[in-house]
Design a protein around this nucleic acid. Structure first.
Length: 288
DNA sequence: CTCCAGGCATATT
DNA sequence: AATATGCATGGA
């Protein structure tokens, strides 16, 4: 509830990006489903987020997606972020060939798999280890507020901060990160940052290498196991052919689909998995 | 106060 | 190669 009349106006090159034919896309399902941790829903259905050093407001109206606050030059970025280059109608039709997935599709009409930034996905999914989404959001917020660059906008009623760069985090030690209250996940954050800075973890390589090799490299990071590695491949590297291992989900869903879970169409197994995960959460499956 | 969160690292069989 | 246990922290 504070005003800052001295703050410079938003950069003049910023405006509203409008994407026609964004459907099927549901912001709540996509932005608030445990894929990303830097979006907050508003009462009017819009979402405010900090992504790639941009503080933006996203909303849907009549099948059109509007992104306010982004540089006009960032249009390709947002198109990729929301996977607007993919024909989700066709993808859903293909997934619907499997009976189990067909059931799930009905409960997530506008779910999409985001293409997030690599380093942020790597760090945030290290944080998800044995953790819950609200707390991950809190840790990420503290991480950004403490070590990220101020961006000049507002987020959650506070000044907005960028996600910290690998270089910034790599120079820290565990005591510096104690303020995050991230517990035993801290060494993983540091190792991830240092491996990126050293070049041992290279985004371009991870995007072009065969999935098994990219996965093997990610597994070399402290705090990255099979689950986190595949989440990073899927959300942070756009490897939609990669399917996060999720023992819990498979066990829980087995109750609903005794005939077996879908084989996961080749090439888009990760997208299929996302529908399964959403379905499981929606139905409050506890795996009992 | 318990339980547990889309696991992982490590020590045991 | 499987299987068991500890783990920091705080939301519910």
């Amino acid at each position: 509830m504070k005003q800052d009349a001295t703050r410079p106006p938003a950069a003049r090159s910023r405006g509203a990006l409008v994407f026609e034919r964004a459907a099927p896309l549901d912001l709540a399902e996509t932005l608030d489903g445990g894929q990303a941790f830097r979006w907050r829903g508003c009462e009017d259905g819009a979402y405010v987020g900090v992504v790639a050093r941009q503080v933006v407001r996203a909303f849907l109206k009549g099948g059109r997606l509007t992104i306010e606050g982004a540089p006009l030059a960032a249009r390709p970025f947002w198109r990729a972020y929301f996977a607007l280059d993919l024909d989700y109608g066709a993808i859903r039709r293909r997934l619907a060939e499997d009976p189990a997935l067909r059931e799930c599709l009905g409960f997530a009409r506008g779910l999409r798999v985001l293409r997030q930034e690599f380093f942020e996905a790597l760090v945030t999914f290290i944080l998800t280890q044995n953790n819950n989404v609200p707390r991950v959001k809190g840790i990420v917020a503290r991480l950004c507020a403490t070590f990220g660059d101020p961006l000049g906008g507002d987020f959650e009623g506070e000044p907005a901060f960028a996600f910290p760069s690998p270089g910034r985090l790599a120079a820290l030690d565990e005591s510096d990160l104690a303020c995050l209250r991230a517990g035993y996940r801290v060494p993983g954050i540091l190792d991830a940052a240092r491996q990126v800075v050293s070049g041992r973890l290279d985004e371009t390589a991870l995007k072009t290498l065969p999935v098994p090799e990219a996965r093997a490299r990610l597994l070399g990071v402290r705090g990255v196991g099979p689950k986190v590695a595949d989440c990073v491949l899927l959300y942070g590297l756009g490897r939609f052919d990669c399917c996060p291992v999720d023992v819990w989900i498979r066990r829980a869903l087995a109750r609903f689909f005794p005939d077996g879970l879908p084989a996961c169409s080749s090439g888009i197994a990760g997208i299929a998995q996302q529908y399964l995960f959403h379905y499981a959460r929606l139905h409050g499956l506890d795996g009992r």
